[in-house]
Structures are given as C-alpha cells and as structure tokens.
Amino acid sequence: MNQPLSLKSAERKVFQTTFADGLLDIFMGCFVLLFAVAPFLSESMGDFWSSAIFLPFWGLVYLAIWLIRKYVVAPRLGTVRFSQRRKLKLRRFSLVMVVTNTLLLILGILAVIGFGKEAGSGFIDISSAYVYLLGLFLLVGFSVAAHLLDCPRFYVYGLMLALAGPVGEWLYIDYGAAHHGFPITFGFTAAVMIFTGLALFIRLLINNPPVDGQGI
C-alpha cells in the first residue's frame, strides 16, 4: 500500500482494468478499416456491397472478441460487476457508440458512393466541408468515449481520426494519393489502434497467467 488510499482512484483502477485487454481497441480498429479498405472494394464490388460486406466482418470480430473475453481474459483477470454510477456511464457509452457507429456507417457509405465519381455526379460531393465535418464528428465521438470510459488513449485515436480526413485530402491534392488518401490515413490509424490493442492483449497474456480456481 504505497499509494495513498483514495476510493475514487480505487474505483477508477477497477474500471480501467476492463480496457486493459486491448480488445476494444482492436474492435474499433477493425471498424476504422472500413474507411481504408472500402474504396478499393468499391471498384470490384460496387459502392453498396463494399461497405455492406463489413457488417458480417464486424460481427465475426465481435464474436471472436466475446469468446476471447470469456475463455481467455476472464480466467486471467476475473470478473466484476460495477457500481450503479459506472453502469450509468457504460449505458451512456453504449448510446454514444450506437449513435457514432450508425452515423459513421452512413457517412462512410455516402463517402464511398461519392468516391471515383466526378464532382457533382455522385450521391454527394467529397468537399472539404464534408471531410472536416467527418473529422470533427470522429473527434467528438471518441472524446466522449474517452471521457466516459476513463481511457485517455481514446483521445489520441479521436485526434488521429479527426486528422485522417484533412491529411488524406492533402495527400490527394498535393501528391495524387488514390481515393482521397483515405486508405493511407485511415489505414494508418486503424493499424495504430489494432496494434495497440494487440500489444495490450499480449502484455495481459504475459503478465497474467490463468489462475487455478482451486474450487473456490
């Protein structure tokens, strides 16, 4: 007990263990992959299916994460039921994620439909305003999540995602990067999220061997 006793910090520590496994980072990284990969897929699969194909992909990733949590993480970290205050925060987080993901999916589909078409002929124009709006929206969504989950690295993800659009546009205009530079910028951000999650998960496996229940 080298640290001063603080109920608030104790509660925070308990809550933060939930995200120590890195699996949420991996899931969100897989979500961001849509923006990086869909533009390529749209050439062969069409605009709609290039995005729609991600739904079963996310479903599989979610299922895999659920199984890993149940059979790999829980025996190592144990299980906890949070206080009512935290449960309320988690419900707010879930709401934020549902709204964010739904709107992002819509924006992503609209963006993909707009890609590869001449300005004015697509469903929407890929304008600077749209890119900045997407960036701002991602920044706000991730910042709210970071705040509600007490997980500071989500602020960094939000910032990276907010910059991905404008930087992609810059790469597109100045260097002719394909698909508005989205595969590069969103791909890089997705890679950072997924590798961070993997690193956290591997660290968890190394530092926390499974505990023999010994019947109690």
Binding site: L7, A10, E11, V14, T17, A74, P75, R76, L77, G78, T79, V80, R81, F82, S83, Q84, V211, G213, I216
Partner: peptide
C-alpha cells in the same frame, strides 16, 4: 466501489 467481484479479480 463495485457491486461484486470474483476471487481472481
């Protein structure tokens, strides 16, 4: 600070 937890946790 929690509702419940198990031994491992």
């Amino acid at each position: 600070v929690v509702e419940s937890a198990d031994y491992v946790f």
